[in-house]
Design a protein around this nucleic acid. Structure first.
Lengths: 142, 142
DNA sequence: TTCAGTGCAAAGCGTTTGCATTGAA
DNA sequence: TTCAATGCAAACGCTTTGCACTGAA
């Protein structure tokens, strides 16, 4: 879990990148900074519209792309079609997706990462990035 | 690498499932049985058209869906938009994708699988399925 | 004042689907 | 003969883009 990022931090980064801090962007940044989950564009759009009804879905997508290129957020293509976003900055981790609720739990395994490197090396490859997603269901308490 | 599957095997399974062995299906089954790689629908379509120019892309998709539902093939959503297919039956494995060529290398790690189960269990979950994809580049021979 | 950013509608892309026709059994 | 399967074109779901307008700097 990335520690909550202040939207001021985002604004600061954007300003430094020479980007204008417009009203729609303020709204989206605020949503992202308050977000603990992994929302998709439509979800972000819905939350944004409640704050400012004039915001468009295109702007959400454009802003996400901007933030992604700045390395401020990560985009994930979990199963289900839509891309889902999360704030960057919490260090590398993988995901366990609850197939009943869509909830995402982050985890990290140094051991698995080491094994991945080992496997890639033995196949003559160098890993550039990877994707490890566990799709599961809450274990019934017995 | 799944050992080459004879298209006769596919035909047999399809017949038992009560579906008609049409000309387009024969063509697609032949392509799949001769395939060593992980082609996408368009790739299969292109190969099919060379054998029978009247085949349509819809039929490729419909046939892939049919085979998938029968458990005869697996569909993978690697990076890059298009779904890619492979024959089922080679036992579970994960994938290393060459980011320069798109080539796919299959691998399996009992250790990684065990660690995944352990992690899921410790988070109170039961894994239904997972996705482990390594995206890499051939190591420069030195 | 200027031009980056916006909303809107349209396009793009991979995939699916409705429908009239065809061909396997 | 019958109805499952096909080809075609249109629709779909998510995402991107062209364009004229707007508002941050």
């Amino acid at each position: 879990m990335a520690e909550a990022v202040q939207n001021k931090d985002y604004e600061e980064r954007l300003r430094r990148a020479g980007v204008r801090i417009t009203r729609p962007r303020q709204v989206i940044l605020r949503i992202l900074s308050e977000t603990e989950d992994h929302p998709d564009a439509m979800e972000i759009f819905n939350r944004a519209v409640e704050i400012d009804p004039s915001i468009s879905l295109s702007t959400v997508y454009r802003t996400m792309k901007l933030l992604e290129e700045m390395g401020a957020i990560h985009r994930h293509a979990f199963e289900g079609g839509r891309s889902r976003f999360e704030q960057a900055g919490g260090g590398h981790h993988d995901h366990l997706i609850d197939i009943d609720t869509g909830d995402v739990i982050e985890f990290h395994s140094r051991k698995i990462e080491a094994l991945q490197d080992e496997i890639a090396r033995s196949l003559g490859y160098e890993i550039v990035h990877h994707r490890l997603e566990l799709y599961g269901r809450k274990r019934r308490r017995r």
